[in-house]
Design a binder for these strands. Structure first.
Length: 588
RNA sequence: GUCUCCGUAGCUCAGCAGGAUAGAGCACCAGAUUCCUAAUCUGGGGGCCGUGGGUUCGAAUCCCGCCGGGGACACCA
């Protein structure tokens, strides 16, 4: 594969030179060689630790190796100069011509610039959102949705074959409670004489979902079934209606969730239903597999340390020996009523993923599920013992929604939480998505409704969009020339122009490192920096008219700069695409 | 009590799988607009990277202890 990543290219050059200098050295001695931008730009365009890394196995002092390596590298056509530095680094300064030559590379690749092959086509299943189908999505789900979607896009760009998956938790007690709540709205639609409290007193677990969003579901049940499920508008035996109302309600909730996701621009490839998996016996099969491997037993757990639940009692349970795979305690597979625990069903879910042939599993969960990671990884290890498949979990922290400097109170019970639909309506899809990616997923985040719509430098969404719009504005006023990849580029020599080119060439390695770290927020930071470089250049043109992009008196220089602008726009678009944000043509 | 994440400028946060003199934005101070959008930009001050050890050529980064904070801890999902 021909990489467009010049850092990878020069790293290969450095390794080749070292191999030549030290033919005795085993190949794995070069594994830790890095070629990266130095912190201090005055050190040059790239720096490598190659001499430091190789010094020990080569039994030579690093400075001596660095000097020899520098001499070799200095002879390369891409390299202007190379010098040993510090304890054994080699700093490289690239020829400006080589840097400029990256612009046609970018323009020809277009948005494919930065695509990588490190994923090597491995099949990755990215499961995200997976909100319980018990109500509309709120901002908490939203972060997971955006992070997951961007991560999936990122992995795709970096060479994985990605499936975007949603796991519907439609088999547990909460869905049961949802059905009871929907049934209440149904009774209301039929004109029941009961009060809410009277109804709530007689249902298992109480009336848990009181939000108004179930009212339409009650109406829909009425128009579909009349009073057949509650003759005389009186509560009937659940055996008569529960298996009808539950799936009906789940379907209604999922329709709403799909709508919310669509509004966010999130589209999953696969929706997997927990209930269906259970019906298909997937969970039982997975547990049977574990049992065959001697990992399932009947046992009594210690009470949890710290705070013991009031109703705790020692009791034999069906347990999975997850401690053998690094978990803290073994985990129950069956509830006291004999049905599967959520964990047992999720083992089935993962068994199903493995059966579908994925090479890597990635999940995005809320941080409150952090305690669940070890047991799930244990289960996947146990199930994939013959062909290890890694399970990576990305946790997303809480989002605090702020308005006018005050936190917006959220309560699902009271039905006052901020729904995703509200949020999108208020600030727009692109702002929501971009902002959700301006923090590391695992860091708490304040989402300031006022700032996000503010059109100022403080707002990174705006800042990046504005840079793209400016690029487009320039290209439009130049008549959108199409043959910029052939433009002569020698006139691009101003430090600000070269700085922008250097930034652009860092895009491929940014994609790779972000994908490997599973950190899509790095894309947002990169774009912010890139936008900054562009704004700087733009402003130089204010002070120094010879630096303007379009110069009527200098057609060649104009073409060169248009090539630079077009490349910048391309990379911004490419990054925004990963984030799922629409690049704008103008800022009206 | 156990597990887990976190602690970097006054504030909000980056810091790229250990690298050279630790960065950005906001806030603060001083500047730039006959111009392709000043919705932007330039310059400046500001840090014991919570703390004590360890690993090594080299640590904000890796390991251990401590302090401080978030989250999770059978039969919820």
């Amino acid at each position: 594969m021909t990489s467009t990543d010049i850092f990878a290219a020069l790293r290969a050059r450095a390794i080749a030179a070292l191999r030549d200098l030290l033919p005795e050295l085993p190949e794995d001695a070069f594994a830790k060689v890095q070629m990266e931008p130095p912190r201090d730009p005055s050190h040059g365009d790239m720096a490598t630790n190659a001499a430091l890394v190789v010094a020990k196995p080569a039994r030579q002092p690093p400075p001596k190796l660095a000097a020899a390596l520098a001499e070799r590298l200095a002879a390369l056509p891409e390299v202007e100069s190379a010098a040993p530095a510090g304890p054994g680094f080699v700093n490289l300064r690239l020829r400006e011509g080589f840097l400029r030559a990256q612009l046609p590379v970018i323009l020809e690749a277009a948005e494919a610039y930065g695509d990588s092959a490190i994923g090597a086509g491995r099949r990755a299943d990215v499961e995200y959102v997976s909100a319980n189908p018990t109500g509309p999505m709120h901002v908490g789900h939203c972060r997971g949705a955006v992070v997951g979607d961007a991560l999936a896009n990122l992995l795709d760009k970096a060479g994985w074959a990605v499936t975007k998956e949603y796991y519907i938790n439609d088999a547990g007690a909460q869905v049961q409670a949802l059905a009871w709540a929907a049934y209440w709205r149904y009774l209301q639609a039929l004109g029941t004489m009961l009060t809410e409290e009277e109804y709530a007193a007689n249902i298992p677990g109480g009336l848990q979902y009181r939000g108004e969003y179930l009212i339409p579901v009650g109406e829909a049940l009425k128009s579909r079934y009349g009073d057949a499920l509650a003759p005389g508008a009186l509560p009937a035996d659940p055996a008569l209606w529960l298996d009808t109302v539950r799936p009906f309600t789940v379907e209604a909730m999922m329709a709403e969730i799909r709508q919310d996701l669509a509004a966010l621009g999130v589209r999953h490839d696969v929706f997997v239903s927990e209930a269906e998996l259970v019906r298909a016996g997937v969970a039982d099969r997975a547990i049977a597999t574990l049992a065959e491997r001697g990992l399932v037993y009947e046992g009594v757990l210690e009470p949890p340390k710290g705070k013991t639940p009031d109703d705790w009692e020692p009791r034999p349970q069906t347990l999975f020996a997850s401690t053998r795979f690094g978990d803290d305690v073994d985990r129950p597979l069956r509830k006291s009523d004999g049905s599967n625990t959520y964990f047992a069903n999720d083992i089935g879910n993962h068994g199903d993923k493995l059966a579908r042939g994925f090479d890597e599993l990635v999940h995005v969960w809320g941080a409150d599920h952090g305690g669940y990671i070890k047991r799930m990884q244990a289960a996947v290890s146990a199930l994939s013992a013959d062909r290890p498949v890694p399970l990576d979990v990305v946790l997303t922290q809480i989002v605090k929604v702020m308005k006018g400097g005050e936190p917006v109170r959220m309560s699902k019970r009271a039905g006052t939480y901020v729904t995703l639909a509200d949020l999108i309506e208020e600030v727009g899809r692109d702002a929501v998505r971009f902002t959700m990616l301006t923090r590391k997923a695992d860091a708490q985040m304040e989402f300031d409704l006022d700032k996000v719509v503010e059109q100022s430098r403080e707002n990174p969404v705006f800042y990046v969009q504005y840079a793209h719009a400016r690029c487009r504005s320039v290209l439009r006023s130049a008549g959108d020339p199409s043959d910029l990849a052939e433009a002569p580029l020698d006139s691009l020599a101003d430090p600000a122009e070269l700085a922008l080119i250097r930034r652009l060439t860092a895009w491929p390695r940014t994609v790779e490192s972000a994908a490997l770290a599973r950190e899509p927020h790095r894309i947002a930071f990169f774009l912010h920096d890139l936008a900054g470089d562009f704004h700087v250049l733009w402003n130089r043109g204010r002070e120094d008219t010879t630096l303007r992009f379009i110069r009527g008196d200098e057609p060649e220089a104009t073409r060169a700069r248009l090539a630079l602008v077009a490349a910048t726009a391309t990379v911004i678009r490419s990054g925004l695409r990963v984030m799922g944000v629409t690049p704008v043509e103008e800022m009206r």
